[in-house]
């Protein structure tokens, strides 16, 4: 069964179409990467899944199915409940996801209380487990967000998400603002998560190096439309479309010297 299935999605705003006739599916235990330049519509597509589109953008056609159910036929409240519990977002702007003057542990606790019925002791265990999984020391529980580095904050948002055992992770440029060490760590954690929980991952990135290593499938999007789509191996080593070739050529590499 596929976890996420998008078919014929069209997003429109006053300025015109942002995304046209888009389709993509994420299977169980699979990571599907969506790549394209900034402004291509990839972020808007990810927001559409969780009912997070800005008021100026609307879905004018198509369907989004989560675990077989059409999301667009659900009410706002039902979609809200899905978001956070079954569908988790990890965004580039990790700092905005955390309240600066509340300790980490308390914030994670709040999230857990909102979505589960565990008692206090179990909640604390769950949080500590999540912190351990994301390679954060226990003392992070009492720390404040401003005491954390970028990499640590992104791990906290991961911990917050995985505590609730979501079926789908939507990650929009999760490592772009981080340096290499942290980026690799985060991606490794995500990869382990995928293997252990069979969750689905929609990874939006413009960093093709990460995509090559961690994504099973890839879809290339340009100006709101699909350029090509398929298994990562095939698309990135033998791209059919000129645009994909351009994207690949733009990645600086250690081995190839540019002309």
């Amino acid at each position: 069964m596929t976890i996420l299935e998008i078919k014929g999605l069209t997003l429109a705003s006053k300025q015109g179409y942002i995304v046209r006739d888009f389709e993509l599916s994420v299977g169980v235990g699979m990571c599907h990467a969506l790549i394209g330049e900034s402004g291509s519509g990839k972020s808007m597509t990810s927001l559409a899944i969780g009912d997070l589109l800005p008021s100026s953008v609307r879905i004018s056609a198509g369907d989004i199915r989560f675990l077989g159910r059409s999301l667009l036929s659900l009410s706002t409240v039902q979609r809200e409940r899905l978001r956070g519990k079954d569908i988790a977002y990890i965004l580039q702007e990790y700092a905005g996801a955390l309240t600066p003057f509340i300790p980490i542990g308390k914030q994670l606790d709040e999230t857990l209380r909102a979505h589960s019925v565990l008692d206090r002791k179990l909640r604390k265990e769950c949080i500590l487990q999540a912190l351990e999984y994301t390679r954060l020391p226990d003392r992070m529980y009492d720390r404040y967000p401003f005491q954390l580095s970028g990499g640590q904050m992104q791990r906290v948002s991961l911990a917050a998400a995985l505590m609730l055992k979501p079926k789908l992770f939507i990650m929009d440029e999760p490592t772009t603002a981080l340096d290499r060490t942290n980026a690799i760590e985060i991606l490794r954690i995500i990869s382990n998560l995928k293997e252990q929980t069979n969750c689905g991952i929609l990874l939006i990135s413009h960093d093709l190096r990460n995509v090559k290593r961690y994504a099973d499938d890839v879809t290339v999007i340009k100006e709101g439309q699909i350029v090509e789509s398929g298994p990562t191996q095939r698309i990135l080593s033998a791209p059919a479309q000129t645009y994909t070739k351009r994207l690949l050529a733009a990645v600086p590499s250690l081995r190839i010297r540019p002309s």
Binding site: E37, S38, H206, D207, L208, R246, L247, A249, A250, V251, P252
Partner: peptide, 11 residues
């Protein structure tokens, strides 16, 4: 802060 295509143009 720029994506790969723009980055290579600027470089």
């Amino acid at each position: 802060n720029l994506d790969a295509l723009i980055q290579s143009e600027i470089l």
